[in-house]
């Protein structure tokens, strides 16, 4: 293992790049956590759902809309799509074994992935993001406007979501439905709709993550596949049922992976993904409930 030539400026740039990646991981991880809390299952289609909505954005922009005009439309479509998916295909298996729900989401992933190829064709294409790629000087460190924009959008979204969950009645109902279905029904919360609403929110978070990374990665049906894995890692790192954990886990993972890739020659670009995998495995073996997760007691 050799250590590449080190400068503080570059180190700061790497940190920024890591935070930018981490912000995207965090958004998708948060989506996974929201669904996990309400459905107790992992949505393996989260990445495909995000890519699909990003394709919708691409189409709208192709029809002459600007990014920021398309953005809210895409979010609405994502929300409605998420709610519809929960109501139609998740609901019938909701009370079944976790494996069944997981496989249904895998089926959904296949379906959406294929649908994207059918509608838009395979292969990757450039996606014009809302932020310019030129760099500005922040305290002597050149940082791209795009990085700042992505981080800002992600943070604003997470902040809004936190306020929503904490201070609105609907947010409280969502949390209650995720924590205890029976008691929620007794106080008049429509639990079924709350779960669907959770899927809608998750789809929105995924859509934002997708639209943020598309300018960097190019758009293709498999765009989110590896990002989904990082998001899994981030969610597990933070503890699957902790929204705060998902955000912190995402940022930590983004920075750690970027730094390891840059400064540990053996890892480089190729082994980033396996390294992330190893990282979650280690976390799970040492702290099975992640860094922020609740300890689940199993009674015998």
């Amino acid at each position: 293992m050799y250590i590449a030539a080190f400068t503080w400026t570059e180190f700061a740039q790497q940190i920024t790049a890591g935070v930018r990646q981490g912000a995207v991981f965090a958004g998708l991880a948060l989506a996974l956590v929201i669904i996990y809390r309400s459905t107790r299952a992992i949505n393996f289609a989260q990445g495909e759902m995000a890519t699909f909505t990003t394709f919708v954005c691409w189409s709208l922009m192709n029809h002459g809309l600007s990014f920021w005009a398309a953005f809210p439309i895409v979010l609405v479509i994502a929300f409605v799509g998420g709610v519809t998916i929960e109501r139609t295909i998740i609901r019938p298996v909701e009370n079944g074994p976790v494996i069944t729900i997981v496989i249904v989401t895998l089926g959904l992933a296949l379906l959406l992935n294929g649908l994207m190829s059918v509608i838009w064709g395979g292969g990757n294409r450039p996606f014009n993001g809302p932020f310019s790629t030129r760099t500005i000087d922040v305290g002597g460190v050149p940082i791209s406007v795009q990085d700042i924009g992505i981080v800002a959008v992600s943070f604003v979204l997470v902040g809004l979501l936190a306020l929503f969950f904490r201070f609105t009645k609907l947010g409280l109902g969502l949390r209650a439905a995720a924590l205890n279905r029976d008691s929620s029904e007794l106080v008049g919360v429509r639990v079924g709709w709350m779960l669907a609403f959770g899927w809608g929110l998750a789809a929105v978070l995924g859509a934002v993550a997708g639209m943020m990374v598309a300018p960097i990665l190019f758009l293709d049906p498999n765009m989110m596949q590896t990002i989904l894995l990082y998001a899994f890692a981030a969610a597990v790192l933070g503890g699957l049922d902790s929204p705060v954990g998902a955000v912190v886990g995402g940022l930590l993972l983004g920075v750690a992976i970027t730094l390891l890739g840059r400064y540990v020659g053996f890892i480089g670009d190729t082994l980033k993904l396996p390294t992330a995998l190893l990282l979650i495995l280690l976390v799970l073996l040492v702290k099975p409930n992640g860094l922020f997760g609740r300890v689940a007691v199993r009674r015998v």
Binding site: V93, I103, G114, M116
Partner: peptide, 26 residues
């Protein structure tokens, strides 16, 4: 009328069949 060069269709069918089967025949 699909373009065979666009290979998504089998995945769409397989995914849909999988979902339907799991819903009606667990």
């Amino acid at each position: 009328n699909l373009n065979p060069q666009r290979p998504g269709m089998p995945d769409v069918i397989f995914g849909a069949v999988l979902i339907v089967v799991l819903i009606i025949l667990p």
